[in-house]
Write a protein that binds this DNA or RNA. Structure first.
Length: 720
DNA sequence: TTGTTCCAGCTTTTT
DNA sequence: GCTGGAACAA
């Protein structure tokens, strides 16, 4: 392939970045400016021009999705396999390092990766032994504290007591938590990063090996790195000057979970010989959208500075809609969606973006009654489901009997008569002996101090595991999973569960077997590692998607955070109200407001063609009615880029001053969501009912003519 | 052991 | 005002 193909399709700034001399490079890439493109082409350049072999390439991202995309785009461009390149997430790559060098990292070969849910359970379990009141020390808060320390590279032993009671307690729990993880061979997400950093730092030969190997290091979303991630990058590239980072300080929205926007500023200090390149040409949005975004973000201080521009035209003005209340806001959005679709637009090009998940319900309801397919992002993912985690716990115990977290999880699931009392006895002994729960259970049985029934039940569990292990021995991975799913009793348990829930769970378990069948061991493995352990780690590190039906043409609903990196032709930014967005908490703390503003910037720049900003003049939140002011972010957009949407004939606005009091879930004749027929307008769905008696009127969404208000005393409506 | 009731909590989320 | 988890009773 000739070099020209790598750079000919790029604009000047992109080309400058891709072909930069081998030295530290910071690419400030605005939204929609071709950031991934630059990274992919830079990798190609390093191979084609700088003479690197794929083996010499390291590329780090934050999400599995980004890593997968980068890998496939590199392969498409270079027409070679990217298999020997290390392209992955910080956590995935740290995990790989730890598997390869478990001994140097002082980890057992069969160490298990736990997700945050598992981590929380481990912490909760500590409380019993330490006599800690969980209402005084919320486990969630403790988890957060521990992870925050690890993200900063601080271990319990490093912490200096200040005499502060809170801090003292935190250190005590942190210490105990580290001990349990150590004993059970458990590694949480933050630990992956910290451990990988320590392993490299303390093993000169290993570090040298990787410094030599990774001649080119590429980092995506650099503004989202935390302290330990940046430290890891610096360690790995020290003396090599080969760090190529891409990021956007204006899109840093994860400060609240440890991301350090400062890293992007420190980079310039740490590498005085670095080259800074700005990508400002945007290929996504119209001029009006970009100008609005630029204006909003200039209200932040201390930016590196960047102004997006486009060669395409101004496009349509941004529409601002002041809804009467949150119901009206949802009606409005759904009506606009209906118009878009009836004009031939695709639903998958539409996104409704909100600040907090709680806001989605309003829209879901309205989309439901109008029969509009939609998809809500977020929520439980495949490997996070209870039934899946239970099955995985059995698999983990097969691999390692001393995994206490898994032991506790399934020792009595399905119920087999091992009650709290018995488990408490096991815990007690385990603690006294400093042994695992499994070992303690064995000891208890040997002692013969348990009741006959409990002994029998416990033996039954231990024999079950022995049977599972035997049946799984020597089998293919998916056969092993199948054995566990079928013989653990989980299927029977969920079959008994009433409703569709149990059915779905059984299906999910079957899907787990399938996932094991599809698991591509070779991709994850470059050493002689245990396939089952790799599958378990994969389950923790890549929790899978929430919903599968990506192929249906759906309206997309998600938080602003999860919208980062995506683009849609039509975007609704909803709930633009003070207290909601920016959220209450962030208006009270300085600094945090700027992050909210960046979030708004992210939201605006998702839109390609049309952007609607909506807010409600009255909103029910946490059961209380509030009358929020329009968000300051809307007012930060100059009037010339904005148009107010006036109430149109077919967009309803309740006529009474206080329509709430008149709203009802059902009238004497009709219910919300009911299908009705009108002589002239045809068929439709009842969306709203207000008033009573002769004043009673209903709002109906007709298939043909859209939304109409009808006085019940006049209109002849028929129930269908 | 299961079903019920009560009560706290309530941004954002990936790994 | 709703939800999920924990405490309680049967």
């Amino acid at each position: 392939m000739d070099v020209n193909t790598i750079i000919s399709s790029l604009n000047d700034a992109q080309r400058l970045a891709v072909s930069a001399q081998p030295k530290p490079v910071l690419v400030l890439a605005g939204a929609g400016s071709g950031k991934t493109r630059v990274l992919v082409h830079r990798i190609a350049w390093n191979i084609q021009v700088n003479g690197a072999s794929p083996h010499n390439i390291l590329a780090v991202t934050f999400t599995n999705k980004a890593a997968t995309e980068m890998r496939s785009r590199v392969e498409d461009l270079l027409k070679i396999s990217a298999r020997t390149m290390w392209i992955g997430t910080f956590h995935g790559l740290a995990h790989r390092l730890l598997r390869r060098h478990a001994k140097q990292a002082k980890l057992p070969d069969a160490f298990q990766v736990i997700d945050s849910d598992d981590q929380l359970r481990v912490i909760k379990r500590l409380y019993a032994g330490m006599n800690i009141d969980d209402s005084k020390w919320p486990p969630k808060q403790v988890q957060w504290y521990i992870n925050a320390q690890k993200d900063e590279g601080i271990r319990a032993k490093h912490m200096v007591e200040t005499g502060d009671v809170f801090q003292q307690q935190m250190i005590a729990i942190y210490k105990a938590y580290e001990e349990v993880c150590e004993r059970s061979g458990l590694v949480d997400f933050a630990e992956l990063l910290l451990r990988a950093h320590e392993m490299l730092r303390d093993n000169e030969d290993v570090l040298e090996f990787y410094r030599e190997r990774f001649r080119h290091v590429h980092v995506d979303e650099f503004q989202d790195t935390n302290t330990i991630q940046y430290a890891w990058l610096r360690l790995l590239t020290e003396g090599q000057d080969n760090l190529f980072v891409v990021g956007d300080d204006d899109q840093s929205i994860y400060g609240w979970r440890g991301a350090k926007i400062e890293n992007i500023y420190s980079f310039q200090k740490h590498y005085p010989n670095h080259q800074l390149i700005r990508l400002e040409q945007n290929y996504r949005s119209t001029g009006n959208i970009l100008k609005a975004a630029n204006h909003v973000i200039t209200n932040n201080d201390g930016r590196l500075g960047k102004e997006l521009w486009t060669e395409s035209g101004l496009g349509e003005l941004i529409s601002v809609y002041s809804a009467f209340n949150e119901q009206d806001e949802a009606y409005f959005v759904v009506e606009k969606i209906r118009q878009w679709v009836s004009d031939g637009g695709l639903r998958r090009d539409i996104a409704i973006l909100y600040r907090s998940n709680a806001q989605s319900r309003q829209f879901e309801e309205k989309l439901m009654v109008t029969g509009t397919p939609y998809r809500v992002y977020g929520g439980l993912r495949f490997f996070e489901r209870m039934e899946i985690k239970n099955a995985l716990a059995y698999l983990r115990l097969i691999s390692n009997r001393h995994d206490d977290a898994s032991f506790e999880r399934v020792v009595n699931t399905p119920t087999r008569g091992i009650g709290n009392k018995t488990i408490e006895n096991i815990r007690l002994l385990a603690r006294a002996q400093g042994a695992s729960l499994w070992r303690a259970a064995e000891l208890l049985i040997a002692q013969g101090t348990l009741s006959a029934r409990a002994t029998h039940a416990l033996k039954g569990f231990m024999q079950l595991l022995a049977r599972l292990e035997e049946a799984a021995d020597g089998q293919e991975l998916f056969e092993k999973v199948k054995v566990v799913v079928e013989q653990s009793g989980l299927i029977e348990l969920y079959k008994k569960e009433k409703g569709d829930k149990g059915e779905v769970r059984v299906e999910n378990l079957e899907e787990l077997v399938n996932a094991a069948r599809l698991f591509d061991f070779d991709v994850e493995n470059d050493e002689n590692l245990n396939e089952l352990d790799m599958f378990l780690a994969h389950a923790a590190l890549e929790a899978g998607d929430a919903q599968a039906d990506e192929y249906e043409d759906c309206v997309q609903l998600m938080t602003l955070h999860s919208a980062k990196g995506l683009e849609f032709k039509l975007v609704f930014l909803v709930g633009l109200e003070e207290g909601l967005f920016p959220s209450q908490q962030s208006t009270e703390e300085a600094g945090r407001l700027e992050e909210e503003r960046r979030l708004c910037y992210v939201g605006i720049t998702r839109a390609m063609q049309q952007l609607y900003l909506t807010h409600a003049e009255s909103r029910r939140l946490y059961g209380k009615e509030s009358y929020p002011r329009q968000s300051r972010f809307v007012r930060e957009i100059p009037a010339e880029y904005v148009q107010d949407v006036r109430i149109r004939a077919n967009v309803s606005r309740p006529v009474t001053a206080k329509p709430r009091s008149g709203l009802a879930a059902s009238s004497g004749t009709f219910k919300l969501g009911e299908r009705v027929k009108h002589a002239k307008f045809g068929e439709g769905v009842v969306l709203q009912i207000e008033g009573a008696g002769a004043q009673e009127r209903v709002q109906v969404n007709f298939n043909d003519v859209g939304l109409k208000f009808l006085m019940l005393s006049y209109a002849k409506l028929e129930r269908l």
